[in-house]
Design a protein around this nucleic acid. Structure first.
Lengths: 343, 343
DNA sequence: TCCTTTAACGTAAACGTTTACTCATTTGAA
DNA sequence: TTCAAATGAGTAAACGTTTACGTTAAAGGA
């Protein structure tokens, strides 16, 4: 098919070794030959074959990314951050959407391994033993982002969900709320489900507030489960003045359902989100939310990966990202909201 | 580093050719040797090196994707569709986010070429002459999705923006609206900007309605430009009962700005979106919108690409996708909305 | 002047596969 | 039986690079 280094060598009347050295900016050739070769490259329109390079060299300048789903504001923002950092270092990204399916993850890891990626970034769900083993057997480094492995010692970059949820809850309490509903992820999800729930409960406890079990619902972080969760809250007939949903998507779900039920935020009750994706900004009303620096997390994940790659002797270093609650319009002080089922 | 085919061959006491044949499910070996080799593979934990395969074979089972940005509901949904279809055929995706920067596109194409992708999917902005030339020089096929090239004959898969906008507008008119504001993309964007605007105008004209130039605004399809556009609309003091925003993001922008201005949709005016991303579903109120089958478009793009690859003799075949207006809550009949600045 | 160094290249062996040729051994038909 | 065809395997040449190792010639030192 294409022009190879041999063609260039022949055209310039030098050996392929010389061409290679020039292309790679090494030393060992004169200025005149360099110009000659450069000219030939230009004339022929040569561009090196990265596959061949990858075969002999040790690297493919490629990193594999595993995400549960690609659509959605969180994943895509994360991916964008990774791509930005990767391109800066001349790496390309293989992206796989695992759909949270065990066997798909396995298959993807296998494929990425065969494709000889220089590293992998795992941003999917909790990993099984089989997956963990597969990852450990990889020659190249693996880093986790926005999740972590409790059973395998992979470095991660993420925010501290427990504390973030704690702070979010405390914010609500500081605003005067006491009857707080909670819509979280499944407790089986030890990373983002249980921790956020624990943070919520601890904050309530620390402020000597009771959590009303009828006002906690466990969803899956997606929009529909936010709607469903809010429906359940209403069905309980319990009074609350605020709901803390541990993802913006779910928070928007409650906004949406509230609208359908003729309830108004923040006049009737308040809602606090989590993530600070674009959904929070675009919501009506704009969501007050616990913010994760998603873009930055993506970037950090690749730089962490790359630094491990160069410096394989350093011990595993995790990166904890900062969270903060960004105030918009969906939460107001207790006095300014009616509360649901309160009279 | 890893176990190679040679190791397997040695371990099984056969030649590498035999191992290769077995691994690739070809013929030319006996059942006993097969079992022997399979056992060795299992024992050693061998997995083929796709890079080496790519070097000798003609294919890398890899396709490159160019998107202007990765975050955002449209792009990510599209990407998800592509990934789904690609994985089904055992292809992996290199994803590049060009940020709509000319030179980045050029660089990305170059990289993808060096990485020997089997094909490319272009979903970025209008391409320049230089980019077009680069793409034409590629040995592997290129398909456009959700965009097209007016100057280069690349096959595309997209909806007919002109007709979709025409139908969207007609829907509004059918609902009794006459004073319709329009928030579109820049007219310099010949693909999604101008065409949708043209469709809008034609529909108005065909129904003998005048388009009020003070009520048309050109944004960039993003959320902030929807907000800004709506502010401009209000500033004009002209009366309108509906606004057609040619992206859901912009439509949500008007919803958001309307909320801030104390206006209510659809009580005060209606808004029609475009795309049918998740934003439309999640909006308050849920957006009535002109729907594109985004996921399906992504899938079709890769199957088109792959079919071209196998069958390089067939002429360029474009794929036109169906659009439809999906009714939700943001548009009601003229009688049920007050209209802005009307008394 | 002669020897040593160094700069400027070329040769050829990898890298891990696939695959076109061989070649031997069976098999089966006549 | 005899021979042609089929089967099961091995050999070695690609694929396009990088790179360790040679080689040559010019330069520099004594």
């Amino acid at each position: 098919m294409g022009i190879t280094i041999k063609d260039v060598a022949k055209h310039a009347g030098v050996s392929i070794a010389t061409v290679s050295r020039i292309v790679n900016g090494q030393t060992g050739y004169g200025e005149k030959t360099k110009q000659l070769v450069l000219k030939s490259i230009e004339d022929l329109g040569y561009s090196p074959n990265a596959i061949a390079r990858g075969l002999v060299g040790r690297e493919t300048r490629t990193i594999g990314v595993l995400l549960p789903k690609l659509s959605g504001l969180f994943a895509s923002k994360l991916l964008q951050g990774m791509e930005t950092a990767a391109r800066q270092e001349n790496y390309s990204l293989f992206v796989c959407h695992t759909d949270s399916k065990e066997e798909r993850v396995i298959q993807d890891i296998q494929v990425l391994k065969e494709k000889q990626v220089d590293g992998m970034i795992y941003a999917s769900d909790q990993l099984s033993e089989a997956q963990g083993q597969l990852l450990e057997d990889m020659a190249s480094p693996v880093v986790f982002v926005s999740t972590q492995s409790l059973t395998h010692p992979f470095p991660y970059v993420k925010v501290d969900d427990y504390n973030a949820a704690y702070d979010g809850t405390s914010y609500l309490i500081k605003m005067g709320h006491e009857d707080i509903a909670f819509i979280g992820g499944d407790l089986d999800d030890l990373i983002a489900g249980k921790t956020r729930n624990d943070g919520f409960r601890k904050a309530m406890c620390d402020h000597e507030l009771r959590v009303n079990e009828k006002l906690v619902y466990y969803g899956d972080f997606r929009f529909p489960s936010g709607k469903e969760g809010f429906r359940q809250l209403l069905a309980s007939k319990e009074v609350f003045t605020a709901v803390f949903a541990t993802s913006d998507e779910m928070a928007v779900g409650v906004l949406s359902e509230a609208y359908e039920q003729g309830l108004s935020v923040p006049d009737d009750f308040c809602v606090l989100g989590y993530d600070n994706t674009m959904a929070a900004e675009m919501a009506v009303p704009p969501l007050t939310t616990v913010s994760q620096p998603i873009d930055e997390m993506g970037k950090r994940a690749v730089s962490l990966l790359l630094s491990i790659r160069e410096n394989t002797k350093t011990p595993v270093r995790n990166i904890d990202m900062e969270h903060e609650v960004v105030e918009r319009k969906s939460v107001v002080i207790r006095e300014n909201t009616k509360g649901v089922f309160s009279r």
